[in-house]
Design a protein around this nucleic acid. Structure first.
Lengths: 191, 191
DNA sequence: AGTATTATTGAGTATTCACTCATTAATAGA
DNA sequence: TCTATTAATGAGTGAATACTCAATAATACT
């Protein structure tokens, strides 16, 4: 019994924040501007997010979960290790190319000092299935056994990011980079 | 005929900035605090750097050139490709582990919107010898020929950063990570 | 329809901070 | 030693901005 909050407004605020953070950076994007672009009063922003830091943390979760969803939906559980890895690789690269603003914001958030441990923890859950697969692959001797599992998953992410960076700089070579990146990764971890 | 500027003061300001930027982030480190920690008046900071942005750009160049020096000094020009790559790999990893604050600042600067094109360009010069080596290695058929040169150097950097991250989280496995990282990289790019 | 509750608004506030500038101190060269 | 020039100082300033709050509007529930 009361007036409900609007999911639309919340999303509009997060969208505007994404745009402004990507264009100007976290601290150069004032809450006044964010609310203006979202089409709400500045006070409204603060009923949805108690502080600017809380808005930033919420945005981080939102983007990370979108990314997780893009990667892990339709995950081909029954297919070979290589196919599953290639699935993750392609989805991740495609998401990065299709969502440059979100990616830029993520990069800023990850080096900022405002993310709470809870926010970071909350986003790791969707990736556990992937982690398990890596461990299995090592046990099944598909991968070299001298590389720790955490080094493999971290390297996948690092190589994907490198690949996206190159593609953003030279979009015409997208296919080439996507393939050569994966070849490199696969050759690096298998026996 | 005048009072000269002091190299010491300039360095003290850059050092203080490094510490504060690493601990609090670029915008949460006020010039008042930076000058206080550097042991100079706030006005003095502005005789060495006209604006805060200029200070940030100067710091970026300073750190990048230190890194370049750490990597490229004693570069074993006469040795094998593998030895030279391993030299770069080890030096880079060691620098990252030994200079966590500088590394943190670099990460923040690279995603910030304040770096000028000149600053970015100025730091690429020391790495040309490395780039040339990559191209040679491809021509000499030491590396696979389906990976563009720029993808190889970008991947080296990406994998080194991943390796440093892991090492910072688990210092006891430093040696293991350094080795497995390089193995992975080498296996990924050679035939 | 009536009411209690909560959302919405935007002008206002307190604070923070990059940068200035008048004054003083130091130094190089004559 | 004298002087011209520039560095050093730090209180002061104007602008920006995160957040508040009193007034108003919308909505769910009875």
């Amino acid at each position: 019994m009361a007036r409900p909050r609007s999911e639309n407004k919340r999303n509009a605020i997060l969208d505007a924040a994404t745009r402004l953070f990507a264009e100007r950076g976290l601290t150069a994007a004032p809450t006044s501007e964010i609310s203006k672009q979202a089409g709400v009063a500045e006070g409204t922003l603060f009923t949805y997010f108690k502080t600017k830091d809380e808005l930033i943390n919420a945005l981080y979760r939102e983007i990370k979960l979108e990314l997780a969803d893009a990667i892990m939906s339709d995950f081909p559980r029954k297919k070979s290790i290589r196919t599953r890895l290639r699935h993750v690789w392609d989805r991740y690269v495609n998401w990065g190319i299709a969502n440059p603003k979100q990616r830029k914001v993520l990069a800023q958030l990850q080096v900022s000092e405002v993310l709470t441990k809870e926010s970071k923890d909350a986003t790791s859950a969707p990736f556990v299935e992937f982690q398990v697969m890596i461990r299995d692959a090592i046990e099944q001797r598909v991968f070299r056994n001298d590389i720790p599992a955490e080094h493999i998953s971290k390297s996948l992410a690092a190589l994907v990011e490198a690949t996206i960076d190159l593609t953003v700089a030279k979009p015409s070579k997208a296919q080439e980079y996507r393939d050569s990146g994966f070849q490199m990764f696969w050759a690096g971890i298998t026996r």
